[in-house]
Amino acid sequence: MLEAKLAEAGTLKKLLDSIKELVTDANFECNEEGLNLQAMDNSHVALVAVHLEAAGFKRYRCDRPMPLGVNLSSLTKVLKCAKDDDECTLKAADEADVLNLVYEAKNSDRIAEYDMKLMDIDSDTLGIPDTDYDAEIKMPSAEFARIVRDLSALGESVRIEVSKEGVRFASEGESANGSILLKKEGEIPPVKTDKERKAEKARARGEKPEEDEDEENDGDDEKPKEKKVKKEKVKKEKDADEDVEMDEDEKDEEEFKPNSDDEGEKSEPEEEDDEEEESGKKRKKKANGSSKPAKKAKTAKGKGKAKKEEENQPYFEFGMNSHVSLTFSLKYLVNFSKSTSLTNMVELRMSNEVPLLVDYDFGQGFVRYYLAPKIGDE
């Protein structure tokens, strides 16, 4: 039996809106880890992979792995009956022919229930290999959507080139050509491997990466010896570096003294205020002649403007192991960009003669698109 409850139906609605034009019928593979969908478009040029984690649901139960064959356009129509903030519960019995959807309103006692017929879809899940890419681009999803939308008005394809100069999107049409360059100053970092990326995600969740667990299991016998050697070295270093530690303490004291002086300076104006109460004329002159508060106000305004400018600037970064230049169909990239409503950031990973990966990673899962490059276009 399957029972999956989402806190907001809007998440599922946005997810289906982003893939319904590429895929018509697909299987939701349900298991203990969550819901998975993998399908190709009719021309077998693009592949869509969707994953909703079990932890992202308010309540999740799946007794055994089961497929749910769904027509995405029909499911979209049923989901339109729910508000974005309604709680959505998906229910299906073992070997059931019907998917039950329940919408619960948060601000009222309204409960809506719908049944949708399931389909028998024969589809083989493709094993997507772990690939180490030569270039990686991370940018705002809205900026990516704008670029592909603007260039699609000029031509049918776009050339994405990653070099030391930056990332260039170029399109050539019959009447006009267009090129957009995203530059970033500084050194270009290398692209992280697939293992490093998985290890980072595991650490972010508070889990131990597989590599760390393997090292712990393999090095159990060697660790006690290493610890003893390290302890002896630490003792010797402590004996040899006692003078250095004293010097650092003296530096800390020296750094602390100016703070005490500042406190003394702060106390002096209080004495001056007492004297100013006795002589009202001096107090007026000092109040009129003091320009320090005005300067502070100006600097505060300047900092606020700088922060606003930093927030308005698009966040962009990229890594590169080698020069990459590939050409793709803009029609598909425009369809991919419909996932912008799910997350603010998008990642593009590229390698020569390898499909492009467009990754939209949001809090409850991810949507990944794989697009084959065009061959023969310069």
Score class of each variant (00 low, 15 high):
Glu3Thr: 04
Glu8Tyr: 01
Leu12Asp: 03
Glu33Trp: 01
Asn36Asp: 13
Leu37Glu: 07
Gln38Ile: 01
Gln38Ala: 03
Val48Phe: 06
Lys58Ala: 09
Arg59Pro: 09
Cys62Asp: 03
Arg64Gly: 05
Met66Trp: 05
Glu87Lys: 02
Lys91Gln: 04
Ala93Thr: 06
Asn100Cys: 10
Lys106Glu: 12
Asn107Pro: 01
Leu118Gly: 03
Asp120Gly: 05
Ser123Gly: 00
Gly127Val: 15
Thr131Arg: 13
Glu136Arg: 09
Ile137Met: 05
Ile137Ser: 01
Ser141Trp: 03
Ser141Arg: 01
Val148Trp: 01
Val148His: 03
Ala153Thr: 05
Val162Cys: 11
Glu165His: 04
Gly166Met: 01
Phe169Arg: 01
Glu172Tyr: 08
Pro209Gln: 11
Glu210His: 02
Asp218Glu: 10
Gly219Leu: 07
Glu222Pro: 00
Lys225His: 11
Lys228Trp: 14
Asp241Val: 00
Glu253Leu: 14
Glu263Trp: 15
Lys266Cys: 15
Lys266Ser: 11
Ser267Ala: 15
Pro269Asp: 12
Gly280Asn: 05
Gly280Asp: 11
Ser290Tyr: 14
Ala294Phe: 08
Ala300Asn: 05
Gly302Trp: 15
Lys303Leu: 03
Gly304Arg: 13
Phe316Thr: 10
Tyr332Leu: 06
Val334Trp: 14
Leu348Gln: 02
Arg349Phe: 15
Val358Lys: 07
Phe366Leu: 08
